[in-house]
Design a protein around this nucleic acid. Structure first.
Length: 885
RNA sequence: GGAAGUAUAGCUCAGCUGGUUAGAGCAUUCGCUUGACGUGCGAAAGGUCCAGAGUUCGAAUCUCUUUACUUCCACCA
């Protein structure tokens, strides 16, 4: 039994994938190694959350990166794909809090230390799950370098950056309006807000004038905030209210006097034209309050309950208080009307709770100075966005950036390295806990309770994972990284922040290219989500169809930055493709001699079809390489697919079958060589996309193969350039297709072979036809072929095929329907005429001939010549038939 | 309110810097135990490239306008 016969008839991914992956890893092929002889190529993984489960988005993201890194590795770069995970402060903390709740505990009850212990335990238990899942995608990450955003080194980097920014005055602590999630119990940054258009109400409320002269009507969507009102503002230009500016109003329910003030902020013509001002609970009001020097009265606590400033409402939950206040206003006759009102309400990105903006004391990063170099990094081209339209989104955000609230009232995360002096109140900010206050020398210091936004640490990922702030050899060699692959949905959260962090800390960009991909949606185009239950588990798909099939289906038809749909049919066809190449290999090996000695191959014995495919494979190599360099992964893949399936399997293999089956054939070894040569080239081109099946095949093709993943990327081989043979075989394929077409149309069974007569006066065409007789016989169902220069002996009822500079005649005896044949020829003649007219009018257009590139004009001329020749043949035959018929 | 994307065969999508008789997969129709594969082979049908205007010798491709859908940003109490 030879190697081919020992291969299963159907490729079964699940039987080989795991072992192949373990082999790669055990042999250290994934390792990024500092090699001064080689150029580095670096990718850092977008670290998945430790709370995460593998989803289709990861699958796409990982596949793209793996394709690029495998390609570069094969090209001879010292490739490093650095993996790791993110601590995901808010998401993880919520998990721990939930787990505690099940035990009837709160985090306050167990205290910070115990809480963190549990969090680390949780991380140890579940943090590796996602990493295991990434491996099943075939990811060739250097797992020996796996990092975690809260490991020792990265925490050091975080403290270093914090201290540096603080010392430069770019981090400050201040009292400002911040968005607060009463459910997660923490402040959040602006970009963590998700707005949605919600149904609400406009409550119109009368605020009576203190002097008893009537009332002023305001409208609000949050009536409970009136407890914190300190004024009512009107537009200074508003004729209606000119006279009341400066008058005092009685704040309902609170019974306190507040002034009517004038401020441009109030928009003319909107609502009642009078706006209650609650500086502690609204960012705009806060600004108005500052301008008018008004007090800031916070009336709600961190959990969303009315505080002691709320008088009799103190202790009530915010919505209960709202209801009560509306009722009380109604009772006092101050409620004018309630209007339904749609408005945008901010929700917590993580838990969906309606956010409460209020003043609190938080840490911020001053963004303006950081944004400028970051904008320049992209504008100058040092960082390239693919597709480049995302640069616009990026500029727009960066140019209008607000300061970044980085403190979180959470325990799981990097605790802010600020130490308050209990004696003098001075804030000591330092890398390590100071022994005494740098201001008064007191040793009584208390560390800040708050932790940092998760994204603060991931912003440092490209350099912190390489050892920064230490000047490590890794950092020197592998930084800056080459390409970052990520979804466009985190351009602000992560990409932008890495850019300004790197520019500030490293003085250099974090990566040279950012390749953005879109979302993987369900088959109906909906976002995959837990609540819809429409998510598809990549692991299940892998089990069923294989990793390669999943990867293939995600990449084919994918273009940068665009969303795509997940369709199972696509995975199925990808699986079929894996099976196809498996069987092509099986065929090749089944038809190998025992250990063919390719050193004995004589290129002089290459046939026309050997040269044709060697030449075509060369072009494929160049094109695919170029597409990959430009990150056109989907295009590259479909080119290999087409070549392997259509060109290699359906044509070349079929062409060489007779040679292989004839053990005495003189050039059998050459056929085996070419089959092998081209197949290996294709497998290498395909390997980044479909690593497992190509490895499995590679192992079959080579006796002592190490691994395809460390083999070298194919190069176009100049000695295999045969443009003439390529043209010749294209001519023959065209002829065969036409023969098959006619036979099918005439309903001729494939068992009935026809003796074909080729008529041509063109010497080179005659030669090609003669040379290709075996191919025509085999694939064109010919019993034999005669090539001659004139029409002698051609029966009137033979079916005819017009080719450039040649005609083929197929006597099919009684099977041919003359009427039908005349119809067919007439139609064909008409089609050709149309084409010829189109092209000749183009060529007779002086402007075209003068202005179009010579190559294009030449191309059109050649086309015209070809069609004319075919036309002539068709017209002659038609004429003949009509005459004789 | 601002910005962006998409619109190509029944479905899902390719088509790069303008020059193809406009492509693929799936589905459809017809035929095939052709010594690798029916997860296959062969053949076919199917498209005013959303609509309109412009630039050009030439537009699916570039510009503008319209329509439909999608997304992001901002946000008026």
């Amino acid at each position: 039994m030879n190697k081919g016969e020992s291969m299963a008839k159907v490729y079964e991914p699940c039987t080989v994938e795991k072992q192949i992956y373990e082999n790669w890893e055990a042999n250290g092929y994934f390792k990024g190694v500092i090699d001064p002889e080689k150029k580095p190529f670096t990718i850092v993984i977008p670290p998945p959350n430790i709370t995460g489960q593998l989803h289709m988005g990861h699958a796409l993201d990982e596949t793209l990166q793996d394709i690029i890194i495998r390609f570069k590795r094969m090209q001879g770069f010292s490739a490093l794909w650095l993996p790791g995970t993110d601590h995901a402060s808010i998401a993880t903390e919520a998990k721990i809090v939930d787990a505690l709740a099940k035990e009837g505990l709160t985090k306050e009850q167990i205290g910070r230390e115990e809480f963190l212990k549990r969090a680390w335990d949780w991380k140890a238990k579940y943090g590796s799950r996602i990493v295991t899942q990434l491996r099943s995608l075939g990811s060739s990450c250097d797992w020996s370098r796996e990092r975690f955003t809260m490991d020792e080194g990265l925490s050091k980097a975080v403290r270093e950056v914090f201290v540096r920014l603080y010392n430069k005055g770019l981090i400050y602590k201040g009292e400002r309006i911040t968005n607060w999630c009463p459910c997660c119990n923490t402040s959040i940054s602006d970009i963590e807000i998700e707005y949605s258009e919600d149904d609400g109400y406009f409550w119109h409320i009368n605020y009576p004038f203190a002097d008893g002269s009537g009332a002023l009507t305001i409208a609000t969507t949050r009536p409970e905030t009136l407890l914190g009102d300190v004024a009512v503002a009107v537009n200074p230009e508003d004729e209606k209210y000119k006279d009341i500016i400066g008058k005092m109003l009685i704040l309902p329910l609170v019974n306190k006097e507040i002034p009517v003030i004038a401020d441009d902020y109030v928009e003319l013509g909107f609502g009642t034209g009078a706006v209650k001002i609650t500086p502690a609970h609204d960012p705009n009001d806060y600004e108005v309050g500052k301008r008018h020097d008004l007090p800031v009265i916070r009336i709600m606590d961190d959990k969303g309950f009315i505080n002691e400033n709320g008088g009799k409402y103190a202790g009530m939950e915010r919505y209960a208080a709202r209801k009560q206040i509306v009722e009380d206003l109604k009772a006092e006759g101050l409620l004018v009307k309630i209007e339904p009102h749609k408005h945008n309400v901010g929700h917590c990105q993580r838990c969906g709770t309606v956010l409460e903006p209020f003043v609190s004391n938080q840490w911020y990063v001053k963004m303006k100075p950081l944004a400028e170099p970051a904008i320049d990094a992209v504008r100058s081209g040092r960082i390239k966005f693919v597709p480049d339209r995302f640069a616009k989104t990026y500029y727009n955000w960066m140019e209008n950036i607000q300061d970044w609230c980085i403190s979180r009232q959470l325990w799981w995360g990097h605790r802010i390295p600020a130490y308050y002096c209990d004696e003098c109140g001075h804030i000591n900010v330092s890398r390590e806990a100071p022994e005494k206050c740098e201001c008064c020398g007191s040793t009584k210091l208390t560390q800040e309770q708050d932790t940092l936004d998760t994204w603060f640490s991931s912003a440092l990922w490209p350099f912190s994972t390489l050892g920064w702030p230490d000047e490590t050899p890794d950092l020197k060699y592998f930084y800056p990284t080459d390409v970052l692959v990520t979804g466009y949905d985190i351009i602000f959260f992560w990409v932008a922040r890495m850019i300004f962090s790197a520019c500030e800390q490293m003085g250099e960009v974090p990566f040279k290219t950012v390749l953005f991909h879109g979302l993987v949606r369900d088959s109906q185009g909906r976002k995959m989500s837990k609540s819809l239950g429409n998510g598809i588990d990549p692991l299940e798909v892998i089990d069923q169809f294989g990793t390669d099939a999943l990867r293939f289906s995600l990449i084919t038809g994918n273009s940068p930055g665009n969303d795509q749909r997940y369709l199972q049919e696509k995975v199925e066809s990808a699986r079929n493709f894996a099976n196809k190449i498996w069987n092509a290999t099986r065929f090749v090996l089944m038809n190998f001699d025992e250990d063919p000695d390719f050193t004995k191959v004589d290129p002089a014995k290459f046939t026309i079809e050997d040269k044709w495919i060697l030449s075509a494979a060369n072009r494929l190599v160049s094109e695919v390489t170029e597409n990959l360099e430009k990150y056109e992964l989907g295009v590259a893949l479909s080119k290999v697919y087409d070549f392997v399936w259509d060109v290699y399997c359906d044509w070349y293999i079929e062409m060489v079958k007779p040679r292989l089956f004839d053990s005495t054939a003189d050039n059998r070894l050459e056929a085996q060589f070419v089959l092998n040569e081209v197949l290996i080239k294709c497998m290498k081109l395909l390997h980044p996309f479909m690593p497992f099946v190509t490895e499995a095949i590679y192992q079959k093709l080579y006796k002592d193969a190490e691994s395809i993943m460390i083999s070298s990327w194919p190069q176009a081989n100049e000695k295999y350039s045969y443009p003439e043979e390529e043209k010749a075989i294209d001519f023959i394929i065209d002829a065969i297709k036409k023969i098959r077409n006619i036979r099918h149309e005439m309903g001729v069974p494939s068992s009935r072979k026809a003796h074909v007569i080729a008529v041509t006066t063109d010497v080179s065409k005659a030669a090609i036809l003669s040379k290709c007789e075996p191919i025509l016989k085999n694939l064109g169902y010919c019993a034999g072929l005669t090539v001659q220069a004139d029409n002698t002996g051609i029966s009137k009822d033979a079916a005819s095929i017009s080719l450039p500079d040649a005609s083929l005649f197929m006597p099919l005896e009684e099977l041919i329907d003359i009427k039908k044949e005349i119809e067919r020829l007439t139609q064909e003649k008409q089609n050709l005429e149309n084409e010829i007219n189109r092209i000749s009018s183009k060529l007779s257009n002086e402007n075209f001939v003068n202005k179009a590139p010579a190559q294009v004009v030449e191309g059109e001329r050649a086309k015209l010549e070809k069609y004319r020749s075919i036309y002539e043949n068709t017209a002659n035959r038609l004429h003949d038939m009509l005459e004789r018929g």
